[in-house]
Design a protein around this nucleic acid. Structure first.
Length: 560
RNA sequence: CGGGGAUUGGCGCAAUUGGCUAGCGUGCAUGGUUUGGGACCAUGAGGUUGCAGGUUCGAAUCCUGUAUCCCCGACCA
C-alpha cells in the first residue's frame, strides 16, 4: 500500500478528551475515529489489525474443536424473555421494533440464540459436545463508555458456545478454551493473569477472566504471590479473630449523641472500628429491603451481596425509606429487633463478640451486641471486599495485592442457566430427554487491540507486536528513491506500507514511529552510499545497513 | 442516575464587562525554494460559532430550553 493512497491520516494534535494512551495513539495514528460515545469507526489501518487479531483467535479457537458460524444481529426479544435474560441484562439491552411491531434486541451476547439454534437440530448425546462460535458486532448500552476502545457500546466480539451432556464433559472443552486463550494472549504479546470471577449478567456458577495488568484498567483484581488470583467480586481473604475469646457481656443501650459516620461511633465509644457493626441498607429490583451488616473496618461488596441474596440489581435505600419502612434512623441502624428487611451478615461477625452500633433510634447506641443472641441474621456469608495487605485465604501466609487490570477475555461455565428455562434438551443413550450443560467464551477484538497499544507503546507512538501489525514493513523512500524496492517487496509477498509522499524526511520518520510497524526500511542516497538499505526495528533504537540481496530473507526471518 | 467541564472552518485552539469584516496553529490546494527527525516563503479555499427560542440598535459573548461529548462517582448509613 502506498501511504499517499491510504485512507485516513495521522495528525499532530488530538482531542484532549483522549486520556488513555491507547485511545490517543489510535486516534492520532489514524487507526480509529469516533462516531459517538462508545462507537468507533475502524479505518483501514485499524481494521487490518482487527483482522489479524481475528485470524489468530480463529486459528487457536478452532483447536478446541469450535466451528465458525454467524447468527443475525437482531434477536427476537421473545427468546431473551424465555430465558429471563431481558431482566438480567436489563437496561444495557438495545431494543428495536420492526414494521410489524415485532420486538427485537440488538445482540449483546448470544447464549439464547445459539441454544435455540442447537435445539432446532434435536441433538442426541452422539452430537454432543457441540462447539460453535462467531465474530459479530455486539451492542451494549453501557452507562459510561470510556478509554476509547477499552469500553465501548458497540464492538466486535468472538463469542463461542459449547453444549455438553454434563459438567464433566464441559470441563474438557473449558480447559481447551483456557489453553487457547493463553496461546492467543501469547501471540498478541500480552501477559495474562487468569482470575476467578463473578458471572454477572451471563449467569452460571464458575467463570474465569483473562486479565492484563494496566493502569488504564477499570477492573481491580486481587493477586497473591502464592499464585492466588481473583476478581474483586470473588476474592476471599482471611478474616482475623480479634476478640472471639472474650466472654459475652450483657447487651446495653446507652446514650449516644453523635454524628452518623462510623468514625463518630469510634470517637464516642473509644472502641476500635472493627468492633463496630457497619449497617448498609439496600433495595433490590423487586423492592425488597436488605440490611447488610459487616465488621466496621470492612466494606460490603455489592456483587457478593447480590449473589448471596439472588438479586439482579441493588441500590442504596434513601434516608426516608430507612425511617418510614424500617422504622430506623440513618446512622443508627441496627440488626437488633429490626423488621422489614432481610438481614445478611458477613461471616466476619461470627468471630466478633461484644460489638457496638446503633439501636434504630437517634442518639441511642447498643453495646455488647452479639450475633445469634441479640439478633438472628437470615443469611450469613461472605460479603466483604478484599483490600491491599489482607491475608490470602489460599496460602494463609502472604498478603493480598490489588492491581488494576483490563479484561481481555473470559470463559464461563454456565451450566443449566439457559437450558432450564428454554428446554435446551438432548436425547440421552436411554432415550430420555436431559438438559444440555453449557459454556460460553468471549474475547473483544477492539479491546484486545487497545490493550496491546496500552502495553506496547512509547512516547512517539505505537509498537505493534509482529503478529498483529497492520503491515510487516514500513518503507520510507527519500531522495526520490524507493519505487523499485517497493515493487520488489510486493513481488516477494511482503506486506509493505510505502511512504511515497513528497514531504520531509522528518515527517515520514515521525509518522512511522506513530504508526508503529515493526520493521522500518529507509532507502536514500545516504543508505546507498553505505551499501544498501537502512533496517530498523520499531522496538530498537539502533539501525543497520542491509545489502539489497539479503533484505527479503531478513524480513522473512523476522516474521518467522 | 448524581456532580463537574465542554461544544467556534477537517483537526487542535483563541476571541465573552454584548460592539468593527469571528482570529491563530495545523491540515488542504497552487507555485517556488528545500529534503535524514514533524522545513520555508507566497497565494488561496474553507465558519449561518451544536440546535431552538428569547433579550437588544447590535449576540460566539446575556437568558431559557434542548441535544451531544468528556471526566469523576456509581459504594458504607
Amino acid at each position: 500500500m502506498r501511504y499517499s493512497q491510504l485512507f485516513g491520516k495521522t495528525s499532530k494534535t488530538v482531542t484532549k478528551d483522549a486520556i488513555v494512551a491507547s485511545h490517543r495513539l489510535l486516534l492520532q495514528a489514524g487507526f480509529i475515529r469516533q462516531l459517538s460515545a462508545g462507537r468507533y469507526t475502524f479505518l483501514p489501518l485499524g481494521l487490518k489489525v482487527c483482522k489479524k487479531i481475528e485470524n489468530i483467535i480463529r486459528q487457536e479457537v478452532e483447536k478446541t474443536g469450535a466451528q465458525e458460524l454467524i447468527v443475525p444481529t437482531l434477536h427476537p426479544l421473545e427468546l431473551w424473555q424465555q430465558a429471563n435474560r431481558d431482566k438480567k441484562f436489563g437496561s444495557a439491552m438495545m431494543c428495536v421494533t420492526d414494521r410489524n411491531k415485532a420486538q427485537f434486541t440488538l445482540g449483546a451476547t448470544a447464549e439464547v440464540i445459539m441454544l435455540d439454534l442447537v435445539k432446532q437440530f434435536a441433538p442426541s448425546y452422539k452430537d454432543l459436545p457441540i462447539n460453535i462460535y462467531q465474530f459479530s458486532q455486539k451492542f451494549r448500552d453501557e452507562t459510561r463508555p470510556s478509554g476509547g476502545l477499552l469500553r465501548t457500546r458497540e464492538f466486535v466480539m468472538k463469542d463461542g458456545y459449547s453444549f455438553h451432556v454434563d459438567e464433566a464433559d464441559l470441563k474438557i472443552t473449558y480447559q481447551k478454551y483456557w489453553d487457547a486463550y493463553l496461546s492467543i494472549a501469547q501471540k498478541l504479546d500480552l501477559k495474562v493473569i487468569v482470575v476467578e470471577s463473578d458471572n454477572g449478567a451471563i449467569g452460571g456458577a464458575v467463570s474465569h477472566e483473562f486479565m492484563v495488568e494496566s493502569k488504564a484498567g477499570e477492573d481491580t483484581i486481587v493477586v497473591c504471590s502464592c499464585g492466588y488470583a481473583a476478581n474483586l467480586e470473588k476474592a476471599t481473604f482471611v478474616k482475623e479473630e480479634n476478640n472471639s475469646s472474650e466472654a459475652l457481656k450483657p447487651l446495653e443501650q446507652v446514650e449516644a449523641v453523635r454524628g452518623t459516620t462510623m468514625e463518630d461511633g469510634v470517637k464516642l465509644h473509644q472502641k476500635p472500628l472493627w468492633q463496630q457493626i457497619k449497617d448498609v441498607v439496600f433495595v433490590d429490583e423487586t423492592g425488597r429491603f436488605i440490611l447488610a451488616i459487616i465488621r466496621g473496618d470492612y466494606m460490603v461488596n455489592e456483587t457478593k451481596l447480590k449473589n448471596l441474596v439472588g438479586a439482579n440489581e441493588l441500590r442504596h435505600a434513601s434516608d426516608e425509606e430507612i425511617r418510614v419502612t424500617l422504622h430506623s434512623e440513618p446512622g443508627f441502624i441496627s440488626p437488633v429487633k429490626l423488621e422489614g428487611a432481610l438481614i445478611v451478615a458477613d461471616d466476619s461477625l461470627l468471630k466478633l463478640v461484644n460489638a457496638y452500633g446503633g439501636s434504630n433510634q437517634k442518639n441511642l447506641d447498643l453495646i455488647n451486641v452479639n450475633i445469634n443472641r441479640d439478633y438472628q441474621p437470615n443469611i450469613i456469608g461472605d460479603i466483604a471486599e478484599a483490600e491491599n495487605n489482607y491475608l490470602c485465604s489460599k496460602c494463609q501466609k502472604e498478603k493480598l495485592k490489588l492491581i488494576k487490570a483490563v479484561e481481555f477475555g473470559n470463559i464461563f461455565n454456565i451450566g443449566y442457566t439457559y437450558s432450564d428455562p428454554m428446554d435446551g434438551n438432548f436425547v440421552d443413550k436411554d432415550g430420555s430427554l436431559k438438559k444440555m450443560y453449557m459454556g460460553s467464551y468471549g474475547i473483544g477484538i477492539g479491546r484486545a487491540m487497545a490493550i496491546d497499544v496500552e502495553i506496547h507503546h512509547d512516547d512517539t507512538g505505537i509498537i505493534w507486536p509482529k503478529n498483529i501489525a497492520p503491515y510487516q514493513v514500513h518503507l520510507i523512500g527519500l531522495d526520490g528513491l524507493g519505487e523499485d524496492l517497493y515493487q520488489e517487496l510486493l513481488l516477494k509477498n511482503i506486506d509493505v506500507l510505502f511512504d511515497d509522499r513528497d514531504i520531509s524526511a522528518g515527517a515520514k520518520f515521525a509518522d512511522a514511529d506513530l504508526i508503529g510497524i515493526p520493521i522500518r526500511l529507509v532507502i536514500s542516497k545516504r543508505s546507498q552510499e553505505k551499501g544498501g538499505i537502512e533496517y530498523k526495528l520499531r522496538s530498537e533504537k539502533e539501525s543497520e545497513i542491509i545489502e539489497a540481496k539479503d533484505l527479503v530473507s531478513k524480513i522473512i526471518k523476522f516474521y518467522n
